[in-house]
């Protein structure tokens, strides 16, 4: 449990997400603006350590680049999950990229509020995830996810259930008995409409809510039979 020494680990509700307060810290001169813009470009190329196909900017981890009063670049980042183990590495990668680009002194500030959401993943980032074999998340704002529970279907409900059986022997609910989605071989109900990133089929089923990293769930496509990661709405 070693906090990164560069990263202030609590929220600063003032300096995040409010462009006009940020402006106080930005020197108006064009040189500073250009330096900040160059830093954005440099940082756009810093990959996420766990999903290197997307950048920290694509994921919405990189929130702001400003010039602080002391002339240092101030990089504002936000953690994805509370326990994301990659934050220290991300901070190191940022520092290395800025040093290599010779952008002068810098500091990194970590903010918590507003809380990171997968809705901040850029359209480009979503495309990159899909091309990499990870289904991009449903939009939290659209569906209020993830408030509905994914549930195994209780056995006692089976007799009254009008669900059909598919080729693999899994029961497929048809909307009766309060079912909210397809019932897969695992008996779990999908609450998100997840499209297979490999073949594009919407006929998918959750295998486990927790995948290879905290931010992903494990799914399987019933059309092409390939398992894949699903970036959970957060």
């Amino acid at each position: 449990m070693h906090a990164d020494s560069d990263a202030d680990s609590h929220a600063d509700s003032h300096a995040n997400g409010h462009p006009d307060t940020r402006l106080h810290a930005v020197h108006a001169d064009a040189d500073a603006q250009a330096r900040a813009a160059r830093a954005w470009t440099v940082l756009d190329a810093v990959p996420d350590p766990e999903i290197p196909v997307v950048s920290i900017r694509d994921l919405g981890i990189l929130r702001e680049v400003a010039i602080a009063d002391d002339g240092a670049l101030e990089i504002v980042i936000t953690p994805t999950y509370s326990g994301c183990p990659a934050m220290a590495e991300i901070a190191e990668d940022i520092g290395r990229a800025l040093d290599q680009a010779d952008l002068g002194p810098w500091k990194i500030r970590t903010v918590l509020a507003p809380a990171w959401t997968t809705d901040w993943i850029t359209a480009e980032g979503r495309d990159k995830l899909r091309a990499y074999g990870i289904a991009p998340p449903a939009r939290c704002a659209d569906q209020g996810a993830p408030t509905r529970l994914v549930r195994f279907v209780p056995r006692h409900r089976a007799p009254g259930d009008t669900g059909a059986t598919n080729a693999t022997g899994a029961r497929v609910a048809t909307g009766a008995a309060g079912a909210t989605g397809a019932v897969g071989a695992t008996g779990a109900r999908a609450t998100d409409n997840v499209t297979c990133p490999h073949c594009g089929s919407p006929d998918t089923e959750p295998l486990s809510q927790f995948g290879s990293t905290a931010c992903k769930a494990l799914y399987r496509c019933r059309a092409c039979r390939e398992p894949f990661d699903y970036f959970k709405p957060y």
Binding site: A11, Y81, S82, L112, A113, P114, A115, T117, P146, Y234
Partner: peptide, 8 residues
């Protein structure tokens, strides 16, 4: 701020 993250 911590609560807003933790709820998810």
């Amino acid at each position: 701020a911590i609560a807003s993250k933790s709820i998810k």
